[in-house]
Computed example of a mutant assay.
Amino acid sequence: MLEVSVRHRYGRDGFALDAGFTVAEAGVTALFGPSGCGKSTLLSIVAGLLRPDAGRVVLGGTVLVDTARRVFLPPEARRCGVVFQDARLFPHLSVASNLRYGLTRAPRDATGPGMAEVVALLGLEALLARRPAGLSGGERQRVALGRALLARPCLLLMDEPLAALDAGRRAEVLPFLARLRDAARLPILYVTHALEEVDALADRLVLLRDGRVLAEGAVEDLATRTDLPLAARRDAGVLLPCTVAATDPGGLTRLDFPGGTLLATARPEPPGTRLRLRIRARDVALAVAEPRGLSTRNILPAVIQDLAPGSAPQEVFVRLAVGPSTLLARLTEDSVARLALRPGIPVWALLKAVTFDHLGGVR
């Protein structure tokens, strides 16, 4: 486990950081927030690239920073693997040599994946003889990930590793990051301001604004909170754990979730695959009588739990219980008044199959 509680200020009147959070023993904890909120500063403090004004950083019982006791381990003594926005590979070395450099940084008594395992995990077999100049941005980041993993760290630190890539390259790298998350069984601290990366990778979320932690917890739990800045986004909604059940001859995939089944456009994943699906509040419509004769295939019986002010004028968030699962609907105040919506009444939630283009990733 990683425990962080630090304060830092840039100059007398500059940006001030005052934040504390924890990272679990395995899985991905995302530091999320707008540019300038302190994400990369926190990662630099954990990595040993910045000495904070005050505070403590403890990794697995080892004190990395304790300003009160004047403890500050140098970066090379921290057992942290770092992946930056730019891959920072050695341009004169082949991919294989860049990877082997990671092995030279591993302590002699450290255990972890070997070269062949990392190459297979990240799909690097065809790249080993090439040099970084001949790689795409996504390929370079995969090599950087492999090099960091071969150093056999106790903690992986990723500072917006996909920010410099276009949408196609991000989509290429994300599945490898998910495989790394599941195979490495390491704590991973992941800095990003891209919600789709949080959806795809993160187990826990630390939400930052102006150098302060607004909230931390499971990603699914924070996604349902309408009092957080996440609710102000137009893609605000819940993350729903699903399992691929089957794909029918008509080209629709059945996704089972606690409380019901959803139909989505055909998915490539085989039956039994666990997914996390983002259901945007703006895509959920409500009816107070069971609809008939609609093209919409997903009509879910639900009960209204509560209503909360929306993030824009004349908007309301309606929280719905669908069995044990929660959905959010973003409606106008006019719709709420016309339908006389209130907590406790039964409704039907309507979702088109074609709206599920925001899969949060394979779990």
Rank of each mutant, 00 (worst) to 15 (best):
150 L>P: 14
143 V>E: 01
119 V>S: 10
141 Q>N: 00
152 R>M: 05
192 T>H: 12
234 R>Y: 13
198 V>I: 11
161 P>Q: 02
205 L>Q: 10
144 A>P: 08
223 A>S: 15
149 L>A: 09
234 R>C: 12
153 P>N: 03
232 A>R: 15
180 L>A: 09
216 E>A: 15
205 L>V: 10
213 V>G: 07
205 L>W: 10
224 T>G: 09
215 A>T: 11
176 F>A: 12
202 A>L: 09
189 L>P: 13
139 E>M: 05
166 D>F: 06
154 C>H: 15
163 A>C: 09
216 E>V: 04
178 A>M: 12
157 L>R: 07
159 D>E: 03
208 L>N: 00
222 L>C: 13
186 L>W: 04
186 L>P: 02
129 A>C: 09
120 A>W: 10
190 Y>V: 03
165 L>N: 01
213 V>F: 08
137 G>W: 02
222 L>E: 07
196 E>H: 14
142 R>D: 12
149 L>N: 03
203 D>Y: 10
169 R>Y: 13
218 A>V: 12
167 A>C: 02
143 V>D: 06
178 A>W: 00
164 A>F: 11
222 L>R: 10
190 Y>M: 07
213 V>D: 08
230 L>V: 08
144 A>S: 12
197 E>R: 07
186 L>M: 06
163 A>F: 02
149 L>R: 00
121 L>T: 08
158 M>W: 00
234 R>H: 14
225 R>V: 10
211 G>L: 04
124 L>F: 10
180 L>E: 03
168 G>W: 04
212 R>N: 04
204 R>T: 13
123 G>T: 09
165 L>E: 08
164 A>P: 14
234 R>Q: 15
224 T>K: 14
188 I>R: 03
234 R>I: 06
161 P>D: 01
192 T>I: 11
125 E>Y: 10
164 A>V: 14
127 L>Q: 13
151 A>S: 15
157 L>S: 03
182 D>K: 09
146 G>I: 02
210 D>A: 15
184 A>M: 00
135 L>V: 11
145 L>I: 06
172 E>Y: 05
173 V>E: 01
119 V>Q: 09
213 V>I: 06
220 E>N: 07
221 D>N: 13
138 G>A: 10
207 L>S: 10
180 L>F: 04
186 L>G: 05
133 A>Y: 00
197 E>M: 02
139 E>F: 09
183 A>H: 06
149 L>P: 04
201 L>M: 06
130 R>V: 09
158 M>N: 05
197 E>F: 01
219 V>G: 12
192 T>W: 12
230 L>N: 06
182 D>G: 13
151 A>R: 05
206 V>H: 10
219 V>L: 13
175 P>E: 14
120 A>E: 15
214 L>A: 02
147 R>S: 12
231 A>S: 15
